[in-house]
Amino acid sequence: MNRNKGTFKKACVEALPLAIAIAAYGMSYGVLATQVHFSVLTAVLMSVFVFSGSAQLVAVAMLAGGAGVLSVLLTVVLLNLRNLLYGAALAEGLAPAKRWTHVLAFGISDEPFVLASARFKMVGPDPYYFAVVAGIFYIAWIFAALFGALIGGQMDPQKWGLDLAFPVTFAALLVPGLKGKPVIGTAVTAVFLSLVFEWIRPGNELTIILTGLIAPLAGLCIHRRELRD
């Protein structure tokens, strides 16, 4: 019992700073969702059932750009590939939860992965810690989305520049991750490829999927060259 109490406290302390950052993203998502005609209810329901910042933001951005449902789903599948890695890496640490691992799987995403993998390295398997961390992030994500959707629904998008919020949000999400030549190479290749695809056929629905599939290969090539040098 005391151990659980200690784990709970530790999880809260470590999750709180990240929960604030997640709430900021959640608020942006809520505002943006209302711009593609999601009601407050459906915007929040997406957060309740999907609970994935990147998937939700990309989905609403693509819908805003007029993309079809199929291309949105394919892009989200592509984005979700990294969840396979997170799940595989966390499997051992979550194993003591037995059949509850299927519930805990819902919490697998970037931030819980970072905190939980550090914790598992230190103290071994600890599904309770993961559950508390993911729970805090989940609550922060839902309430932030609700708040954002309530604000967004009251604003005139053009007057307040909410149409600009999509690209700015992605720029702000992208830039901190641009560390190291392989990632930068991937980004530069993605700029080139998406321009080519759009030039060939303006408004091309496949631009995002094809760029997402091909550009990371450039990052891999750069990584291999770095290893050789």
């Binding site: 990147s54 693509m62 984005l79 990294r82 396979l84 890695l85 499997a91 993605a190």
Partner: peptide, 30 residues
């Protein structure tokens, strides 16, 4: 996937995908 040995190249590839998609989304709006 648990317990399987994924090649480092696949791991890196998966990690680079989000950056590529975000860039494409930005370019499409510019």
């Amino acid at each position: 996937m648990a317990g399987r040995n994924l090649s480092p190249a696949v791991r890196l590839y998966f990690n680079y995908v989000p950056a590529a998609i975000m860039v494409a989304l930005i370019i499409k709006q510019i």
